[in-house]
Amino acid sequence: MKAIVCKEFGPPSTLRLEEVENPKPKAGEVLITVKACGVNFPDTLIIQGSYQFKPDLPFIPGSDIAGIVKEVGDGISHLRPGDEVFGFVLNGGYAEEVVVPGNACFKKPPMMDFPVAASFMMAYGTSYHALKDRGGLQAGETLLVLGASGGVGLAAVELGKLMGAKVIAAASSDDKLDLCKEYGADAVINYSTEDLKTRIKELTANKGVDVAYDPVGGPYSEPTIRGMAWKGRYLVVGFAAGDIPKIPLNLPLLKGCAIIGVFWGSFAMKTPKENMQNAMELMQWYAKGQLKPHIHDIYPLTAAPKALEAMMKRQVRGKLVIRCTD
């Protein structure tokens, strides 16, 4: 089969399209013919060796997949060959076939096409786990979303509104913020041209935000914590800015706020029942037309490095998708 292979850590230009051996499912696993794979910001870090974990070289990037079940391993009873599914893997998605753990593979709703399915689980799974399980977001609270036009950020904006919060979207350009307004943001902050801490105070009448969702890090984290409300929850989701910030620990003390880590991948693998419940709730919202993933562009498998380059250059609103097979 054809796959995008990372043989050395580095930029997307080091990736190669190669013929590799077809994978085989073991007990508890499912072999998927991959129709589409979502591109996520962590992919850009993983191929450079700068993510929380480093896969052994060589490896195939890609986590968010959608496709058709080709074969099931022993112990799999909820899926059978021919089922249309979407799922999550640690890596291996940028390929024509991939093996997925059975507890991380779900039947795809008939009305959901493959590119949308490949854009769904990581973005919405991460954001819902963050807001519901880690942040305890309540109706009537104020939610600030940094990097709000990206895949997970836009999902957080959409979910925050569904959960009854007032949503403030923060991003780096007006066109990105226009998309956030379309997805329900009540107010916006352009942190390229506006002072983040000042605008948070203005938009909350000096109260601060109850929950902050931060997949960006870098220079925006400290002013966000300074803008937290009493007993607020600051959610550490990622570091798309490239820098892991050093936070003065007197700030959470003075604010009485919590700094909470969010790692959806580990949550999904370690607590599959809870993750399945979240996935079912997300599917119900999708079926009602209340969740609509925004796909910025679709690339062929041969152009996967170009998709990753676009992600790294911050040229993307919503999600990018790689079409792996016809």
Rank of each mutant, 00 (worst) to 15 (best):
S63N: 13
S13R: 05
I76D: 10
H129C: 09
D175M: 10
P245H: 14
K231F: 14
Y51W: 11
T33N: 13
R80L: 14
P219H: 11
F114N: 07
P115K: 08
E182I: 01
Y124P: 00
A279W: 04
T302E: 15
S77L: 13
V157R: 00
G82M: 12
K161T: 03
A139M: 07
L154Q: 11
P115A: 11
A139N: 10
A212C: 07
N275S: 12
T204I: 08
V5Y: 06
G75V: 04
V72P: 02
D210R: 01
A307Q: 06
V116W: 14
G135V: 04
N278S: 08
L196K: 14
L203I: 02
C324Q: 02
N40E: 08
K273C: 01
I76Q: 12
A171H: 03
D210K: 05
E194K: 09
A36P: 06
V30Y: 06
E309H: 08
R314F: 11
V216H: 05
L154I: 01
A258I: 00
G62P: 11
A187F: 01
A303E: 15
L17W: 08
V30E: 09
R80P: 03
V85E: 13
K197F: 09
V98I: 05
D326M: 12
I244C: 10
S192I: 00
N40Y: 08
E202N: 02
F239L: 08
I60Y: 03
A155K: 10
Q284G: 13
L249R: 11
F267Y: 14
Y183P: 00
K288L: 13
P223I: 06
P305Q: 12
V216Y: 10
A36F: 05
L291R: 10
E158V: 00
V89C: 07
T302F: 03
I200H: 15
S13E: 11
L203G: 10
E8F: 04
L146T: 05
C105I: 06
K54N: 14
L196P: 01
Y286I: 09
S173D: 07
P252M: 11
T14G: 12
K181R: 14
R16N: 06
M121V: 06
N250H: 11
L143R: 01
Q48P: 00
V262A: 04
E202V: 03
G82V: 07
G135T: 04
F239N: 10
D243S: 10
L137Y: 06
P272F: 01
Y124L: 05
V39W: 03
E202D: 15
K306E: 15
S173Q: 09
V34N: 09
T33C: 13
D64Q: 10
